[in-house]
Simulated assay, not measured.
Amino acid sequence: MDYSIFISPCLGLFVGLLMGLTGAGGGILSVPLLVFILHLPVAEAAPISLSAIALSAGVGALLGLRNKILRYKAAAFMAMFGLILSPIGLWASQRIPNAPLLILFSCTLFYVSIRLYRQAYKEIHGIPDFEGKPPPPCLLDSSRGKLAWNIPCARALMFSGGLAGLLSGLLGVGGGFVIVPALKRYTDLPINSIVATSLGVLAIIAGGGTLFSAMSGNLDLVIAAPFALGALLGLLIGRGFGKNLSGPRLQQIFSVLTFVVAISLILKGVNSL
C-alpha cells in the first residue's frame, strides 16, 4: 500500500508551521523532507514543493494586498523575469542527475542557514544591515507612497527576480532567500512591505512553475495536492502562534536545523555519485 498520500499532508503541515513561524524561508525544507521521507529525487520533489509555496505564498500575498503593504508593481516586475527563467530551471532539473542536484541543494541550504544565523545575530545585538553602504537605488517617494523607478533600481530587481525564478525551477525553492535580502539591500521599504512583496513574487513564480510542471507531466498531483493543503493549514496555524513564538532566537534555531539538513543532503549526494 502506498502511504505517501497519508504522509504528504503531515509533511506539508510541518513545512507550513515552519513558514508561519519563521517566514516564507521555512519552505526551503520542503524538498529535503520529500527526499528523505518519501524518497523522491530532487526533480520530482521540486514541483511538489513549488505547489505548496504557490498556495501558501498566494494567501500571504493576498493578505498583504488587502493591508496595502504589497508593492504589486515591484512584485510583478520581479516575477516577470522569474517566470522567464523558471521553466529553464525546471527543464535543467529533469536532465541533471540526482546526486549533483542534491549537492547543489545542500550548498544552497548552507548559504541560507549561515545568512539566517547572521541576520538573527545582528537583530539580537542591534547591528544594522548594510551599515555604511550608499543609499539604495529604489527609494520610496513619501509624497506619492510609491517607489521611484530608475535604471539601477530596475536592473537590481530584474536580476534578483530572474535568479529567484531560476533556482525555483531548478531546486523547487521559493526564492525568498534571494528576494527578501535583495529588497532589503536595494529598497528602503519597511520590513512588513518587503515580506508581503516577496510573497507576491514567490506566489507568481511558484505558481507558474507548478503550472508548467503540470502541463509537462512532471507534477505528481496525488502527493502535491495534500502536501500543499497541509502546508496552507500549517501556515495559518503558525501565523497564529507566530506573535508569541517567532523572533531572532527561533530564526537561529531554524538556521541550525537547516545547516544539519544541508550536511545530510551533501552526504546523501556524495554517496550517490
Rank of each mutant, 00 (worst) to 15 (best):
P97S: 15
K68H: 14
R115F: 14
A54S: 13
P152R: 05
L109T: 01
G174F: 08
L55K: 05
S106L: 03
Y72C: 04
S143I: 00
I151Y: 14
R115G: 08
F81T: 03
G58F: 10
V112C: 08
A57I: 00
V180P: 03
E123D: 14
C138H: 06
H125Q: 11
G126E: 10
P136S: 15
R118P: 00
P87E: 06
L70E: 10
P134E: 13
L189I: 03
N192R: 12
G60R: 04
P181R: 02
A46N: 10
P128S: 12
A75H: 08
S93G: 03
F77V: 00
A120C: 08
G172W: 05
W91L: 07
P136G: 13
M78L: 08
V178Y: 09
A45I: 01
E123C: 01
G162P: 02
P97R: 06
S56G: 10
I69N: 13
Y121E: 14
P100T: 04
F130N: 13
I103V: 14
L62A: 15
V178N: 07
A182G: 10
S49D: 08
L170D: 11
I69L: 05
G82I: 00
Q119N: 12
A45R: 03
D141V: 00
E123F: 09
I53R: 05
S86E: 14
A99V: 00
G161E: 10
A45M: 06
I124T: 06
G161R: 03
M158A: 15
A45F: 10
I103D: 10
W91Y: 15
M80C: 15
G176L: 05
W91P: 00
G161W: 09
D188M: 03
A76H: 05
C138M: 04
K146Y: 13
K122Q: 13
I53K: 04
L171Y: 11
I191T: 08
I84V: 14
K146I: 06
S106F: 01
P87L: 05
P135D: 12
S142N: 06
L85C: 07
L65E: 09
L171I: 00
P137A: 11
M158P: 00
W149H: 10
K133F: 15
L183V: 02
T108F: 15
G64N: 06
S93I: 00
L104Q: 02
G64W: 09
N150H: 10
L55V: 04
G162V: 01
A148D: 11
P97F: 14
A79E: 11
K68Q: 14
L63T: 04
T108S: 14
L65Q: 11
I191D: 13
G161V: 01
C138R: 01
P137I: 01
L140I: 05
L189R: 07
F77D: 10
A75K: 02
G172F: 05
E131D: 14
L101M: 12
M78W: 12
L147Q: 08
H125G: 03
S86Y: 01
L139P: 01
P152S: 12
H125Y: 15
S168C: 10
I127F: 13
P181D: 11
L171R: 02
I103A: 12
D129Q: 09
L171E: 09
P128V: 03
L140N: 07
